[in-house]
Amino acid sequence: MKIVIFETEQWEAAACARLAGPHALACTPEPLRPDNVARFADAEVISPFVHSNLGAAVLARMPRLRLIATRSTGYDHVDLAYCREAAITVCNVPDYGDHTVAEHVFALLLALCRHIPEATERVRRGDVRARDLRGVELTGKTLGVIGAGRIGRRVLQIARGFGMRTLASDPSPDAAARKDPDFHAVSLPVLLAASDVISLHAPGGSGLRLSDPEFALMKTGALLINTARGGAVDPAALLRALSSGRLAGAGLDVIAEEQAFGDEAEIFRQDAQVDPARLRALLADHALVRLPNVLVTPHIAYNTQEAVDRIIETTLGNIEAYAAGAARNVVTAVTPASPSPGGPT
């Protein structure tokens, strides 16, 4: 098969070399984009990360494509409807980062509660006074998790270790969640009203989007942590909630216009007509990152050595399993039963 691995670092390209024996392999640090897709039009298998454009307009220019092995748990960046129509199998990495992402939730939360970034910067300037740096304890506070999958349940477990009360909201909890002693299920409005800290873990496609009505239900002075998806939060509504004092702070590992942030020309490259809603969201993102009570990290909640090792190993296994006619970790309904020895055509 002709395989292209996108968005690769040098170590990833070295790890992927084992595919080069039976297959034609290419690795590139570039994401897949409309302006470079022609160079990869003959690929039968691609493995992107989260910054590649996997919309129908791009995928339609890859007529031989039969497998997308995304190196992520989420797959809302993939046009699944098009993939089903075009008989393209999509595989993901379902469980690489439970501990990793959950730990980052508390890194953001503790940094907010104890003013760690500001305190560190003051000391670097030679200012060792503690004025305006009084924090709050986690013990006794209520943490509400929206989305009780593997990561959400791990967050609940860690929260209990801090002596926090825990709530969870999930419209379709699985059997593991229902058996979890830390899973105290409530409706979303109840969770929003009762929680001192709200942590988002709803998967792509869940329909979750916090906007003005949801922020109006929250406790005054609550904190919001989002390590899930930028689209789960209306950035303009979040900006209003923070500016009004409804929320005391936010820790964000993802933002609404993550791909365009820092490279605003991306919006103009992707769309024939610029979407005003995207421009408003991008403007709100820029305003958010400048607020002193907002911490933003660049989508690194997943990024530990242990997690990235699991990502690449699972992805390589997904590709090898597909080549052997036994696709695994499939998230589309279409799974070719047995690719030919020379690869699917």
Results as ranks from 00 to 15, higher is better:
residue 158 I to Y: 01
residue 160 R to Y: 00
residue 163 G to E: 04
residue 164 M to R: 02
residue 164 M to I: 07
residue 164 M to K: 07
residue 164 M to F: 05
residue 165 R to C: 05
residue 167 L to W: 06
residue 171 P to I: 15
residue 172 S to R: 13
residue 172 S to Y: 14
residue 173 P to F: 06
residue 175 A to L: 08
residue 176 A to G: 14
residue 176 A to H: 14
residue 176 A to W: 15
residue 177 A to E: 15
residue 177 A to Y: 05
residue 177 A to K: 11
residue 178 R to M: 14
residue 178 R to D: 04
residue 178 R to N: 14
residue 179 K to A: 15
residue 180 D to L: 15
residue 180 D to Y: 11
residue 181 P to Y: 04
residue 181 P to K: 03
residue 183 F to W: 02
residue 183 F to H: 03
residue 184 H to K: 12
residue 185 A to N: 10
residue 190 V to C: 15
residue 190 V to I: 15
residue 191 L to S: 09
residue 192 L to V: 03
residue 192 L to T: 07
residue 193 A to D: 13
residue 194 A to H: 04
residue 194 A to I: 01
residue 195 S to E: 01
residue 198 I to P: 11
residue 198 I to R: 01
residue 198 I to G: 01
residue 199 S to L: 00
residue 199 S to R: 01
residue 199 S to C: 03
residue 199 S to W: 00
residue 199 S to D: 02
residue 201 H to A: 06
residue 204 G to C: 13
residue 206 S to W: 06
residue 206 S to N: 15
residue 207 G to M: 09
residue 208 L to W: 02
residue 210 L to F: 12
residue 210 L to T: 04
residue 212 D to N: 10
residue 213 P to T: 08
residue 213 P to I: 10
residue 214 E to S: 15
residue 217 L to T: 11
residue 217 L to G: 04
residue 217 L to S: 14
residue 221 G to T: 12
residue 224 L to S: 06
residue 225 I to T: 02
residue 226 N to H: 04
residue 227 T to Y: 08
residue 229 R to S: 10
residue 233 V to E: 01
residue 233 V to M: 01
residue 234 D to W: 09
residue 236 A to P: 08
residue 236 A to N: 07
residue 237 A to N: 00
residue 237 A to G: 05
residue 237 A to R: 00
residue 241 A to R: 07
residue 241 A to K: 03
residue 241 A to Q: 05
residue 243 S to H: 15
residue 243 S to V: 13
residue 244 S to Q: 09
residue 245 G to Y: 06
residue 245 G to A: 06
residue 246 R to G: 03
residue 247 L to T: 05
residue 248 A to M: 08
residue 250 A to C: 09
residue 251 G to L: 02
residue 251 G to I: 05
residue 251 G to A: 10
